[in-house]
């Protein structure tokens, strides 16, 4: 069964139709890429998947269960983690604190006001393990706003991973990263793939075609093409483009 599924999603803001009809399913362990020109509705689609926008028609399902219209915190608690196109970290928190607050066990104790969050060995060791995974083990104590850009991007992924999600939704994870940063991110995602499902909006074709199992091309609020990178590459026009030259 698909981990995350969207059926015939239709979204309009007033007179503007943003999503005409999108259907989509992520299989366990799959990396599903979403690409498309600006204004195609990719981020809105993400907002529908993560409960920020309620679709006018259509259904979102997590492991077969209808979650359409649930608030984002309920969807997050069901194992859908997301990063944002414009980075949103808790800037005043250290890297460690950012990750700790994302842990499900921290969330389970969210209303606990009687014990200290600082110095809790359980939270700290779990958070340090996640930081180590994205290569930030040495920077646990640095306040997020003082981290360099590439590390902030990595921390965003650490925060998402800390939620131990079933599906990781990344909105343009490479944006603003140089080639080193992209390479580092690609290695990280390749390692995560298979362990959990990943949905990525991405403009960097090289990045996406190298990593994704399947890609959905979104335009005019619809999926205009879908397939494995190899299938999509077979198209004669794609062969003629920069994409065809990549290989």
């Amino acid at each position: 069964m698909a981990v995350l599924e969207a059926c015939d999603i239709h979204v309009r803001f007033g007179d503007r139709v943003v999503l005409e009809e999108i259907s989509f399913a992520v299989e366990p362990g799959e990396m599903h890429g979403i690409m498309g020109p600006n204004g195609a509705g990719k981020t809105t689609f993400f907002n529908v998947l993560t409960g920020r926008v309620k679709p006018s028609r259509g259904e979102v399902r997590i492991e077969g269960e209808d979650v359409t219209g649930l608030p984002s915190h309920r969807i997050a608690a069901r194992g859908i983690a997301r990063s944002f196109q414009i980075m949103t970290l808790f800037d005043e928190f250290t890297a460690l604190e950012n990750v700790e607050v994302a842990l499900p066990e921290f969330r389970a104790r969210g209303f606990d006001g009687r014990r200290a969050a600082v110095g809790d060995r359980g939270f700290e060791s779990a958070a340090r393990a996640v930081l180590a995974e994205v290569g930030l083990a040495e920077k646990a104590g640095i306040v997020a706003k003082d981290l360099p850009y590439g590390d902030r991007r990595a921390l965003e992924i650490a925060v998402a991973l800390a939620q131990r999600p079933r599906v990781l939704c990344l909105d343009e994870p490479t944006s603003g990263l140089g080639s080193d940063g992209r390479a580092r991110l690609a290695i990280l995602i390749a390692r995560l793939k298979g362990r959990l499902s990943i949905v990525t909006i991405e403009h960097d074709m090289e990045f996406l075609f190298g990593l994704a199992d399947r890609i959905s091309v979104v335009h005019w609020g619809q999926v205009i093409a879908r397939g494995t990178p190899a299938e999509l590459r077979q198209n004669a026009w794609v062969q003629r483009s920069n994409l065809g030259r990549l290989q």
């Binding site: 915190h73 997050a76 607050v101 499900p104």
Partner: peptide, 11 residues
């Protein structure tokens, strides 16, 4: 710091 982010962390 960010209501949106907190909500997406499940709070």
């Amino acid at each position: 710091q960010s209501e949106t982010r907190a909500a997406h962390l499940g709070y």
